[in-house]
Amino acid sequence: MGIYGQDWSSYQSATPDTSGLSFAFIKVTEGLTYASPVWTAQRDHARAAGLVVGYYHYPHMANPVPAEATHFLSVAQPQPGDPLVLDWEGYDNANSSVPKASQLAYKEAWLRYVKQRMPHNPVGMYCNLDYWRHVDTTSYFADFLWIATAGLPAGQPGIQAAWLFHQYSDSGGVDRDYCHLDSTGALRSWALSFVPSGQVWPGEYLSLQSPMMHSSNVRAWQQRMSDRGWPIAVDGWYGPQSAATARAFQNDSTAHGWPLVADGIVGPETWRASWERPIS
């Protein structure tokens, strides 16, 4: 059995062919400043096709882990349950001079830092056999391992570790992947199993608009903010008071180390912070 997917970067189209695919991993960032110019289009395209979507970061391992991880998370703004990946390899100019011991330390620290920041997302590592066998010494990959062994049959990566994804081919300029779960639904359920009930972003941006927005999602968020001590009416209407509360909460979150855009709109990052940010 098993299901198939691909991983995409700016080398691929903004709208790759999704025929026969169940999932896609999309490169979002690299180093401290780069963001793929097509990642949002690829994300929207994959979601529209019903794929499970994950995001990955390519590191420059001489840089501080918190700075790179924060750059990745601030750009990707993942929804709870979205898989997050460190693309751990270092053959390029930015990494080849970094000692292997430092590369290993970077990997360990990045996975733990992102997992601490994003406890309700599966966090994992991509690497090839060379890095798995000759650079890694701990076998730590957080929640899941995505192993690359191009040229071996899909689902037969040739390792004993408990892998979940296998990159088995790069033919035709596309990296092709396999997951040993037996359906798209099973993969989605696995990803969402990291999210406590009630904390999944509902997929609806809460914003001030005309006519005024009214929904159960608005009410749920208002109730959460009221529970956190903010003076807000819990009536399901997203009016000026709700927008002002959202903006104040966003500014307060940024001041307490949870950077949010203070736009008065409750999107995935603000929704997540509403439940997960410690009450100060």
Rank of each mutant, 00 (worst) to 15 (best):
W8F: 15
V123R: 05
S13P: 06
N93L: 14
G267Q: 11
L145E: 07
S183A: 04
S216K: 11
I265Y: 06
L145M: 13
Q209R: 15
N128K: 10
N93Q: 15
P64T: 14
W258V: 12
K100I: 02
E108L: 14
A244Y: 00
Q209M: 12
P278R: 11
P231C: 02
A94M: 01
W39N: 06
Q12V: 03
G185R: 10
L51W: 01
S97E: 08
Y205T: 13
P202L: 05
Y4Q: 11
S139C: 10
R224M: 12
P157E: 09
I232S: 02
Y131E: 08
L164A: 08
P99M: 05
V85G: 05
Q103E: 11
S193G: 12
T70R: 15
Y168M: 09
V266W: 02
F249G: 04
V200Y: 09
D136V: 03
P231D: 06
A186V: 05
F25W: 14
A150L: 12
V98F: 02
V123W: 05
Y11C: 06
A101D: 15
A41C: 04
G257W: 07
W230D: 10
D252M: 07
L86C: 10
E68S: 06
Y4R: 14
S102K: 13
G158C: 04
I159E: 08
V52R: 02
P119W: 00
P196C: 11
